[in-house]
């Protein structure tokens, strides 16, 4: 019993092709990975917008902006 197609390495390697675990589940793995990728963008854009809003609220005063411009 093996998670890979390989039960033993004591064979002619010319007969071996795939060596990774989960052969046959590639479609499910791809779907999970693509969903995670898309979800990351959704999370990221919300996070970025929230950060800008918070910083505008906390530091968007003329004093802070003046300080930031002169300090650079």
């Amino acid at each position: 019993m093996s998670t890979t197609p390989i039960d033993t390495w004591a064979v002619d390697l010319a007969d071996i092709t795939l060596i990774y675990p989960g052969v046959g589940t590639e479609v499910y793995m791809a779907v999970v990975a693509i969903v995670l990728w898309l979800a990351w963008h959704v999370w990221q854009v919300k996070h970025e917008n929230a950060i800008y809003e918070e910083e505008k609220r906390k530091y968007g005063t003329p004093e802070h902006i003046d300080k930031a411009i002169s300090g650079d």
Binding site: I51, E55, Y59, I65, A68
Partner: peptide, 20 residues
């Protein structure tokens, strides 16, 4: 409104909040 950062953030600098 997803291309450019807000004007206040551009003036403050993108690192301003984390620097504070």
């Amino acid at each position: 409104n997803l291309l450019r950062i807000p004007r206040e953030i551009e003036l403050l600098g993108l690192d301003f909040g984390s620097n504070q």
